[in-house]
Design a protein around this nucleic acid. Sequence first.
DNA 1: CCTACCGATCGGTAGG
DNA 2: CCTACCGATCGGTAGG
Lengths: 195, 195
Amino acid sequence: MITKSKLNRKQQIIEKATELFQKQGYAATSMRDLAGYLGIEAASLYSHIKSKEEILQTICFQMANDFFQSLEKVELENSSADKKLRKAVISHVQVMTKDSASSAVFFSEWRHLSESYLNDFLEMRNNYENKFIRILTDGHKEGIFKKMDAKFTVLALLSSINWMPSWYKPDGTLSPEDIADNVTDVFINGLKIRS
Amino acid sequence: MITKSKLNRKQQIIEKATELFQKQGYAATSMRDLAGYLGIEAASLYSHIKSKEEILQTICFQMANDFFQSLEKVELENSSADKKLRKAVISHVQVMTKDSASSAVFFSEWRHLSESYLNDFLEMRNNYENKFIRILTDGHKEGIFKKMDAKFTVLALLSSINWMPSWYKPDGTLSPEDIADNVTDVFINGLKIRS
DNA sequence: CCTACCGATCGGTAGG
DNA sequence: CCTACCGATCGGTAGG
């Protein structure tokens, strides 16, 4: 079927593009580069995609959706804030590690989106961060977390996780749960030995 | 004096380039862009610089040196590991906030360095991270910090700080010390209320 | 999916 | 610091 093979080819294009965008950056990756790796001519790419930016859009909004959906599941549970935070971090890490190349592109190439897409992207990111902030402020109200700058803490927390694709080795021994445990343990309990 | 004005012009070029590299990325910034903002022709840039990459090299290695020097000062003091960690974070943040545009370029455009420069860069970064790791492992030996994956923790710590240029507002109310306090407090004491 | 090609733009040089 | 220009490459289209 034409439709099916087209879809598959499109997926191949996006996958290879993701790999190249991660390695070289979006701007430094040419359509000829991409086509070459797929064994076709650059012009042929345009039978499957509308533009170079469409690829970036697909990657970024696919990841954004994945992150959102997995966090919304966590929000539905009702458990204490510290458990919720741990769950939220686990699901965030799971989404990341499931496709670490897409994650890397998502986190560092989104700024090359054109304006209207960029606005949508930033709004989604903001909403996502706010969900984390709410977990922390709820935790404070519950008497679990101490007083803090919740926004600052969330951005620090997410940053520390998000840049993992640049040093996370998938062949390593750490599972998403291990990573989440390490991260949340540091953030929740800190490094100091409790007296 | 010719030499002096050349140096100043070179500094102007590097400053404006830093700004553009931060906003648009290295690869997406053209020499014609840069020249236009300086009110000269692209070809004229080459009286002051050797190549586009030379600008990136200057930014990256200048920042790398600043980070190294400020950390070495901290290492000379002999104080407890938790105090040392706080000092190290303060000086790291100070270097960052002193020139947040250069920092942003340093952290996200270094991969566009050509191979030999890239190797030097990565080696320096590794050495820098190792100095932080040593502070944490010393802290564990001193009985101040609990058992942990020190490398993982340092990378999480540095990531959470390093991506601050993307959300740190210099007109905000947080000083480098405030930021360092927030970060180290979370990492050292954690979020949980101590019993 | 290809050939053939478009106008635009790239980093950079020659020569003044 | 400029004019004039280089060869290379860019994203993308037309037409098959």
